[in-house]
Nucleic acid binder design. Structure first.
Length: 404
RNA sequence: CUAGUGAUCCUGGAGUCG
């Protein structure tokens, strides 16, 4: 029984869901542990939901595994629903919820969960740390890092990533040099930190210096090139990488898209062994950005699902095409909007000289970030409203951003 | 650090300026 379950988990961690299913069905008898392992090994949220429905019995692990499916799919409302419905919760259940808000960069909700949970352990501290990092609150992350009762390699790596992801590459380097232990993740973090900061040479150097690497390493090196439109180098990395996953393919796809090689992009897209929302969006956005709005629309309508990003990608291309009327119509039609969507609409109004409309929309935005402020202020400045722009500049500080 | 199921760290898609 134990060895069956061990094999099942092996498939689960290799994402070999079909093999897991086959094994599960061949098992002479299946206990609850086997069912739970199979739940985690499912291939998609939809399959997991269906499988969860047919469980003969459920324990806390079953519920938490299902909740984790929702968390990984970023469906926090469903996760909350699970959390409320389940008969009992333990620290891991709480921790899974915290992880969900952490990934979304929602530091307030994360903090609320963190403060409500019955106890803390190293994992929950790490999750809260990472929530601050994700939200860009590096100082809070540092404070927590120092305050935690002990730090393990995950804490160090999270803190390291907090620095690289906020562009503090010098601090990251110092931290890296002073860490008690370097794991593969630490190396990968530094590699992609240099890559994102545009220090491609340094990234390359690390890549060569690494004794062991993983698919993540290859993908990080790939995106060091795709980020800056180096199609040639990117495809060389792609060719030489020993394994490829969805991220590998999508990274190369977006390199082609960025460089405007739409025909290559399409060929690659058709060759991809699997696609998800992000790969669909990359191609659709490229079509839209290069003026092929029809193709973008037809691609989008054949997509299996849509989210804020895919909607916004097509919308923002339309809003930049000069057709303000069509943009207004689409803006109202989009089922989900976020600050990016709103900002695109504000920019479109401003660029067409409709400052009053832009201002009204800006005031009505549910969330404003630094980019939205900059868009509004530059809109005012470019339309020769220096005084209003200055007033707005004051508002940026009031909103708690540091203006640049 | 070494025997079975659930939680935390690194890689891909959209907006402004650059």
């Amino acid at each position: 029984m134990i060895s069956w379950n061990t094999m099942l988990c092996g498939y689960a961690s290799n994402q070999r869901s079909a093999a897991a299913k086959e094994l599960f069905q061949k098992m002479p008898l299946r206990n609850l542990s086997a069912w739970n392992a199979m739940l985690s090994a499912e291939s998609s949220l939809a399959n997991a939901v269906a499988f969860f429905e047919v469980f003969p019995e459920r324990d806390m692990i079953t519920w938490t595994a299902m909740l984790t499916w929702y968390v990984h799919s970023r469906h926090m409302l469903d996760a909350e629903r699970m959390f409320d419905q389940m008969p009992a919760r333990d620290l891991i259940t709480w921790s899974a919820m915290l992880a969900g808000y952490s990934r979304l960069g929602n530091a307030d909700s994360a903090r609320r969960v963190f403060d409500s949970m019955p106890q803390h352990n190293i994992v929950t501290f790490n999750e809260m740390l990472s929530a601050y990092a994700q939200a860009g609150h590096v100082e809070s992350a540092e404070a927590l890092f120092r305050r935690m009762p002990l730090q393990d390699h995950v804490s160090w790596n999270s803190m390291l990533a907090a620095h690289t992801q906020s562009g503090r590459i010098a601090e990251a380097k110092t931290m890296f040099d002073n860490m008690p232990l370097h794991t593969l993740v630490s190396w990968n973090t530094m590699l992609s930190g240099y890559a994102q900061a545009g220090h491609t040479e340094q990234a390359r150097w690390i890549f060569r210096a690494m004794a062991y690497c993983s698919l993540v390493t290859w993908n990080a090196m790939l995106s060091a090139y795709t980020l800056f439109g180096c199609v040639k180098e990117a495809s060389e990395i792609f060719q030489s990488s020993p394994a490829k996953d969805l991220l590998t393919w999508t990274a190369l796809l977006s390199a082609y898209c960025q460089a405007g090689h739409l025909e290559y992009a399409k060929v690659l897209f058709d060759k991809m062994p699997e696609r998800d929302l992000q790969s669909w969006t990359a191609l659709a956005a490229a079509y839209a950005r290069h003026g092929y709005l029809e193709d973008a629309h037809s691609l989008v309508s054949s997509m299996p699902a849509q989210d804020v990003v895919s909607h916004t990608a097509v919308f923002s291309a339309l809003s930049q095409s000069g057709n303000l009327e069509a943009a207004k119509v689409l803006f109202d039609q989009i089922p989900i909007r976020n600050e990016v969507t709103w900002t695109a609409m504000v920019a479109a109004y401003a660029q067409n000289g409709h400052l009053a409309q832009a201002g009204r929309l800006f005031a009505a935005m549910p969330e404003k970030d630094l980019v939205s402020w900059r868009t509004m202020l530059l809109g005012l400045a470019e339309n020769e409203r220096p005084r209003k722009a200055l007033e707005g500049f004051h508002g940026v500080k009031l909103a708690g951003f540091s203006p640049r």
